[in-house]
């Protein structure tokens, strides 16, 4: 499995950083990968000829400009979108050939900005995460109850369990949804912009929670993020996308450089070091703040 992983990278001549990291990653975890993906809505092609391997047991962030296809890619990984060509494999099987219920026990997806019906309580929402483990006669087994309570605890939602989701604050609401995905108990968790519509404190709150889920529960996490600095800080592996293709992937320090940001986002910037985490920190230039030396292309401040 490992050799196959590396050969796919050699073939495309991309960075080996992720492959090198794999030596210390758990070998028996879930293996999620895509080959030759072509994704389109009707006739509009969004992603073309994309190969991808998600590092097992790590947090992966997919970043890129608006409409670059990152959410589309995540939807395809979660079998919410049928590829026009190519396949997504989980543990060697095409996700579209795995019965949807079986897949739902292995791979969870939290779409962008989900909406709960009015009056639904947190515990009922989280309980619905157990759906793939339930049958019509077994709707609240011991393991269902334990998983739900554990998910509530992990997301610090225990005290709010009987509140209705629509009366929570934005941050609490997002934590409730993540709790639902956690209760689903899948080794792989896909999150589409989990920090959307949240203020900065709640964004950090949610991302810290994602890190907990990865470190303490060993879940493989793939998330689409907008904020590059947060992606650098919270992801072990970054995939940058441009116009439906992968522009770069690897450890944040290897991938996030000033030329790459300019290429992918069309934004001139300085890349420094995050004083707290030591990860790359992107500082945009903008037209009004470059000072006298405005014509000079800034030197990349990549950290080693």
């Amino acid at each position: 499995m490992s050799s196959k992983y590396e050969s796919s990278h050699d073939r495309h001549g991309r960075t080996r950083a992720a492959g090198d990291r794999r030596a210390d990653a758990p070998v028996d975890g879930p293996d999620l990968r895509a080959e030759g993906l072509r994704l389109a809505y009707d006739d509009r092609v969004v992603v073309e000829d994309l190969d991808l391997v998600i590092p097992t047991g790590r947090v992966t962030a997919i970043v890129g400009a608006n409409a670059c296809g990152k959410s589309t890619l995540l939807r395809a990984l979660a079998r919410l979108l049928m590829p026009k060509a190519g396949t997504v494999h989980l543990d060697g099987r095409s996700v579209h050939s795995i019965p949807t219920r079986t897949l739902a026990q292995k791979l969870g997806i939290l779409p962008q900005a989900p909406v709960a019906p009015e009056g639904l309580t947190v515990i009922d929402l989280v309980g619905r995460g157990r759906s793939p483990h339930q049958t019509w006669w077994r709707q609240w087994s011991q393991s269902d109850e334990e998983a739900v309570h554990e998910a509530l605890r992990a997301t610090a939602m225990t005290d709010l369990a009987h509140r209705s989701v629509d009366e929570l604050s934005g941050g609490q609401r997002q934590r409730a949804w993540i709790a639902m995905a956690v209760a689903q108990g899948t080794p792989v968790l896909l999150l589409d912009e989990p920090t959307t519509y949240l203020d900065l404190a709640h964004q950090i709150d949610v991302l810290d929670l994602v890190t907990d889920l990865n470190r303490h529960q060993g879940r493989t996490v793939v998330m689409v993020l907008h904020d590059l600095n947060q992606a650098c800080r919270y992801a072990d592996h970054i995939i940058t996308m441009k116009a439906g293709r992968i522009a770069g992937e690897g450890a944040p320090a290897d991938v996030i450089t000033a030329p790459m940001v300019e290429d992918v986002f069309g934004l001139r910037c300085v890349v420094g070091e995050d004083p707290v985490s030591g990860t790359p920190m992107v500082i945009p230039m903008g037209r009004h703040h470059e000072g006298t030396d405005s014509t000079a292309v800034p030197v990349s401040g990549t950290t080693g």
Binding site: R75, A78, R79, L80, T100, R101, T102, L103, A104, Q105, G108, I109, L110, P111, P114, V115, A116, P117, L120, L125, R128, G129, S131, P132, Q134, W136, Q139, Q184
Partner: peptide
């Protein structure tokens, strides 16, 4: 009544429902 559990996942939106294994 037998479809109740699946119907209730549909309330969370199509994507969430599919993610929870509902056809």
């Amino acid at each position: 009544l037998l479809l109740g559990r699946q119907i209730r996942t549909l309330q969370l939106g199509d994507d969430v429902a599919r993610g929870l294994g509902t056809r």
